[in-house]
């Protein structure tokens, strides 16, 4: 499992990073989305992988922490998902407004002279 997940994180990160360095705004926004998947999974994986033991506690009694998934990375990632949604929305609006102003969707606001 660890091999697959780390490879997946790497592919998502590589695709995201490649798009991040592209000249068109839409490429960058898709790149940021992919990168945020990679980063969320990365943070999540820091709690190690647990199958079939979500952090839902019994009502009272002794709790053995080793029997459950680590809740901290999950709480962090939950926040990260919502915030990355907000930044994506903001970037999208900046992107279309900039396109309206500059007439181009190049990240520099002007076409590069070939």
């Amino acid at each position: 499992m660890e091999i697959v997940l780390s490879a997946a994180i790497g592919i998502l990160a590589a695709s995201g990073a490649w798009l991040l360095m592209r000249p068109r705004t839409f490429q960058v926004i898709v790149g940021l989305c992919l990168l945020s998947y990679a980063v969320n999974l990365f943070i999540f994986s820091m709690g190690r992988l647990t199958v079939g033991a979500p952090a839902i506690m019994p009502k009272g009694g002794f709790v053995n922490p080793d029997a459950f998934a680590d809740p901290i990375p999950q709480a962090l990632v939950l926040t990260a998902i919502v915030i990355s949604f907000a930044t994506t929305a903001l970037f999208l609006v900046v992107m279309i407004v900039a396109r309206g102003f500059s007439g181009t969707d190049h990240v520099d606001g002007q076409e590069r002279n070939p």
């Binding site: 660890e2 997940l5 780390s6 994180i9 592919i11 590589a14 990073a17 990679a38 820091m46």
Partner: peptide
């Protein structure tokens, strides 16, 4: 650059896991 980046992230994730 992107492939190196992805490989590095991958390596860290795998090492920790």
């Amino acid at each position: 650059i992107a492939v190196v980046f992805g490989a590095t992230v991958s390596a860290i994730a795998f090492t920790v896991m």
